[in-house]
Amino acid sequence: MLSKLLKYDFKALSKALLPIYGISLLLALFTRIFNMLVDKFPMFSVPNGFISAAFVIALIVIPILTFIFTILKFYQNLVKDEGYLMHTIPVSKSSLILSKTISASIYLIVSVIMVLLLLFIGVYGVWFDNKSIETLIKVFGYIDKTFLVFMILSIIIGVLLNQVMIYASIALGQKHNNKVIYSIVYGFVLYNVTQIGSVILMLPFMLFDSNYQKYVQTSNFSDFGLINGFLGLSLIISILFIIAYYFLAVRMFDKKLNLE
């Protein structure tokens, strides 16, 4: 059943997001064309300015819009009228939420890829070129590989944690009559629980690990071993929160569903 749910979740997100991605690609193409034109015909400098501004806005807005749409789709599909259908199909609540989590996460990754693609189409050779990419790769070459992997993982896990945390907030908020307001309130509560919880879980490491103490005293920022340990621990804690919020959302929809 999960594969069937995924099919419909991807379809729903695609219908909302692909047109926006398409328009952004066109915008990138126009940016490229106007950038070339303005070199030869200065009269294009004004439209070029407008298009470049719209292009920059698109770069910023695409991941944000993707994030907003994934949350909106979750809310409309499970808490609003569509919930009457989704909660009466014979599938488990865990599949419903897992499907939403997977489709949203993949679309968020796609949105980052889209931004990179837009940059290459629109401003490669203008804002950056082969040389800047080589420099970037060189800089990354100096950085510890494990650290790099942990950093990338931290970004992905961080996005996933936010996603599942918001799902759990909505699942808690739907119990009440004013579902939107309560979802926002629970969102703030869970955000603070995550922050405070993470610090508490890290405390033993910070207080009792002698290496960490030494690190703080000497401020040796090149000690990647210790930083990686710290990042690894924070990753484990984030994963624990993801699991906890996922099961919280499943439980709320399973035992406390309130489609009043």
Partner: peptide, 20 residues
């Protein structure tokens, strides 16, 4: 639960379809 949903066909008083 899942088993009861397999045997119940439900028409709510509102439109529950995805309009797209």
């Amino acid at each position: 639960g899942i088993e009861s949903k397999k045997i119940i066909s439900y028409l709510p008083e509102r439109t529950y379809l995805n309009m797209n």
